[in-house]
Amino acid sequence: STVKVRLGHLEVTLHNVSEEDVRELRELWKNGADEEDLRRWLEEWKK
């Protein structure tokens, strides 16, 4: 499914993403990950 995730002022649209992935991303964000960390996660996730 396609999910729009809003993290601060960063809005990311993920395609074919699982609930688990979204949860993981939100956890990262809650734990103080900055945009760099999130971008890195997204790069990994896209592979």
Rank of each mutant, 00 (worst) to 15 (best):
L7W: 09
L14P: 00
N31L: 07
E35M: 08
L10F: 14
L42N: 00
K46Y: 15
W41G: 00
L42K: 01
V3N: 01
R39Q: 08
R26N: 11
L25I: 07
V17G: 03
E19A: 13
V3F: 03
H15F: 14
S1E: 09
A33W: 06
G32R: 04
K30R: 14
N16C: 05
E36G: 12
A33Y: 05
D21P: 01
G32N: 09
G8K: 04
E20G: 07
E35S: 08
V17S: 02
H15E: 08
W29A: 06
L42Q: 01
D34V: 10
E11Y: 11
V5A: 01
L38K: 01
K4P: 02
R39S: 06
L28G: 01
E36F: 10
S1V: 14
W29L: 15
E11S: 12
L7V: 14
D37G: 09
K47I: 08
E43W: 10
L25V: 03
L14M: 06
K46M: 15
R23I: 09
A33N: 04
G8F: 02
K47W: 07
R23Y: 13
S1F: 15
W29I: 15
K30F: 07
K46A: 12
L10H: 14
R39V: 10
S1R: 13
H9S: 15
V12I: 14
E43R: 11
S1Y: 15
W45R: 10
V12G: 00
R26S: 10
E20F: 07
G32K: 05
K47Y: 07
L42E: 01
V5L: 15
E24L: 12
L7Y: 06
R23V: 08
T2S: 09
E27R: 13
E20M: 09
K30A: 14
D34I: 07
V17K: 01
E43K: 12
L38T: 02
S1L: 15
K4A: 06
V22S: 04
D21Q: 11
V3W: 02
D37F: 08
L7K: 03
W41R: 02
V22R: 06
E11Q: 09
T13W: 12
V5M: 13
G8W: 02
E19K: 08
H9V: 12
V5C: 04
W41F: 04
D34H: 11
V22F: 13
L38D: 00
L38A: 02
L25R: 00
E27P: 00
K46Q: 12
D34M: 08
K4Y: 04
T13D: 03
E24H: 11
N31F: 04
R26K: 10
R40P: 00
E35Q: 09
E24W: 11
H15S: 06
K4V: 15
L38C: 02
K46R: 14
E43A: 12
K46P: 03
V22W: 11
V22K: 06
N31C: 05
E20L: 07
R40T: 08
L7E: 01
N16P: 02
R23P: 01
W29R: 04
R23T: 08
K4M: 07
R23E: 11
L10C: 12
N16A: 05
D37H: 11
R40L: 11
E44W: 13
R39W: 14
D34R: 11
W41M: 02
E20C: 06
L28V: 03
E11M: 13
W45S: 02
E35T: 08
L25N: 00
S1N: 14
N31D: 05
V22Q: 09
A33T: 04
R26Q: 13
E43I: 11
E20I: 07
D34L: 10
A33M: 08
H9T: 13
V5G: 01
L42P: 00
E11L: 12
L7F: 14
L14C: 04
D21H: 13
D34F: 06
W29T: 07
T13N: 03
N16E: 04
V22A: 10
R26I: 13
K30Q: 10
G32H: 06
K4G: 02
E19Y: 07
W45G: 02
R26E: 12
K47E: 06
E20Q: 13
T13S: 05
H15V: 08
S18N: 08
R39Y: 11
D21Y: 13
D34N: 13
T2K: 07
K30G: 06
E19V: 09
L10Q: 10
E36N: 13
R23C: 09
R23Q: 12
L7P: 00
R6N: 07
K47N: 10
G8E: 03
R39D: 03
L7R: 02
V17C: 03
H9C: 11
L38H: 01
E36Y: 09
E35F: 10
D37C: 08
V3M: 08
G32M: 06
W41E: 00
T13M: 07
V5N: 00
N31P: 03
V3L: 11
W41I: 03
W29S: 04
D37N: 08
L25A: 01
T13R: 03
S1W: 08
T2G: 03
E20H: 11
H9D: 14
A33Q: 04
T2E: 05
G32E: 05
V22D: 02
R6T: 13
G8N: 05
V5H: 01
T2Q: 06
L14W: 02
T2H: 07
K30S: 12
K46W: 15
K4W: 02
H15R: 08
D34C: 04
E27K: 11
V12E: 03
N16R: 05
L14A: 01
W45L: 06
D37L: 14
N16I: 02
T2P: 04
D37E: 15
L25Q: 00
N16H: 10
W45A: 04
W45E: 01
E20S: 12
L28W: 07
T2M: 10
T2N: 05
L14S: 00
G8V: 03
E44I: 11
S18K: 10
D37Y: 10
E11C: 13
K46L: 15
R6G: 03
W45V: 06
S18W: 03
R26T: 11
V3Q: 03
V12T: 04
T2Y: 10
E20N: 12
E27Y: 07
G32L: 06
R6K: 13
T2I: 10
G8L: 03
E20D: 13
D21G: 10
E44C: 13
D21A: 15
V3A: 02
W29F: 15
V5Y: 01
R40I: 08
N16D: 07
L38W: 04
N16Y: 07
L42F: 14
K46I: 14
E35L: 11
H9L: 12
L28F: 05
D21I: 07
V12H: 05
L38E: 00
W29N: 03
E44N: 15
